[in-house]
């Protein structure tokens, strides 16, 4: 199915930190359950290596970055690729609002980490609705 025409939710790779896993888990919740017809995702490293097809898609469709740490790899890769960045989320911001929901590990978030991902997913879904209402 074509990805064109959807909002691109792009999480960081976050191999070293559990908050990266929270961002990815939230992304899957959005694109598979909450807004499957309105949103999709891509592999962030395809932007890193400059894949032409992905560059075209991210320049022509609104993108939402989801980053696990302040280095903000997702946001910076979208910007460096001249993608159409419509909104940015930081997992650390959501954790700050929900301090009791600390994820357990990179490979297994545990119930608290999964809850944190669900809260983030709801915020991303609401942002997708805003983008579709206002900008398209």
């Amino acid at each position: 199915m074509s990805k064109n025409g959807k909002v691109f939710v792009i999480p960081c790779s976050g191999i070293g930190k559990a908050l990266g896993t929270v961002g990815r888990t939230a992304t899957y919740e959005v694109v598979e359950k909450l807004r499957p017809n309105e949103a999709t995702t891509i592999c962030l490293p395809l932007l890193t290596i400059g894949d032409e097809a992905i560059l075209k898609l991210t320049r022509n469709n609104p993108c939402i970055s989801v980053d696990g740490c302040p280095l903000q790899c997702a946001r910076k890769n979208i910007e460096a690729s001249e993608g159409k960045l419509a909104a940015s989320f930081m997992v650390t911001d959501v954790l700050r609002e929900n301090r009791s929901l600390k994820p357990e590990a990179v490979t297994e978030l545990g119930p608290k980490g999964l809850k944190l991902a669900s809260i983030l997913a709801e915020k991303i879904a609401a942002q997708i609705d805003e983008i579709n209402k206002n900008d398209r």
Binding site: I15, L47, Q72
Partner: peptide
């Protein structure tokens, strides 16, 4: 992560790939 945490924890390091650009 299995390699880094269980199989070869003292021998390996990693980095997030998109950090090369960011």
């Amino acid at each position: 992560r299995i390699v880094m945490e269980k199989l070869r924890p003292d021998d390996t390091v990693t980095i997030c790939l998109p950090l090369f650009l960011a």
